[in-house]
């Protein structure tokens, strides 16, 4: 399955995407394709992207995640990034990447609550 980069599971009307380990650039780019296809196919109302298992986030990976959020938004699904680790949050801010335009939540549970609020 060439398009399967990460497991995407359905939770009610939402999708849960879990990013794991150290993803190379090609995988990160192919992720855009996989997630947008899945949002279109399932007509998911919301998309939670869990980055708690991501080993490293540098400027490129952060930018791609921000792009995925924008793409999912254009498809009419709300995207929420959950599980940013404290060390990753500090690193991103020191790098100069704020991710201000992006909905985030501490963990998947809080992310689901946020999605519910965004969808009403």
């Amino acid at each position: 399955m060439p398009h399967e980069i990460v497991p995407i599971i359905r939770v009610g009307e939402n999708l849960l995407v879990s990013l794991q380990g150290d993803m190379d650039d090609e995988a990160v780019i192919r992720l855009e394709d996989q997630i947008t296809r899945e949002v279109e196919r399932t007509r998911a109302k919301g998309t939670l992207i869990d980055v708690s298992g991501l080993a490293v986030v540098d400027s490129f990976i952060a930018q791609v995640i921000a792009r995925i959020v924008a793409m999912v938004g254009l498809l009419g699904s709300e995207a929420v990034i959950v599980g940013i680790q404290p060390a990753v949050a500090i690193t991103l801010v020191e790098l100069g990447i704020g991710m201000e335009q992006i909905h985030t939540a501490l963990n998947a549970g809080k992310g689901m609550e946020l999605l519910k609020r965004l969808q009403t």
Binding site: A55, V56, D58, S59, F60, Q85, A87, V88, T91, E94
Partner: peptide, 15 residues
């Protein structure tokens, strides 16, 4: 924290 910063910094330089 130190490790994450170091790896991210190195990743930027390699890029």
């Amino acid at each position: 924290l130190e490790l994450t910063k170091f790896v991210a910094a190195g990743s930027e330089i390699a890029r």
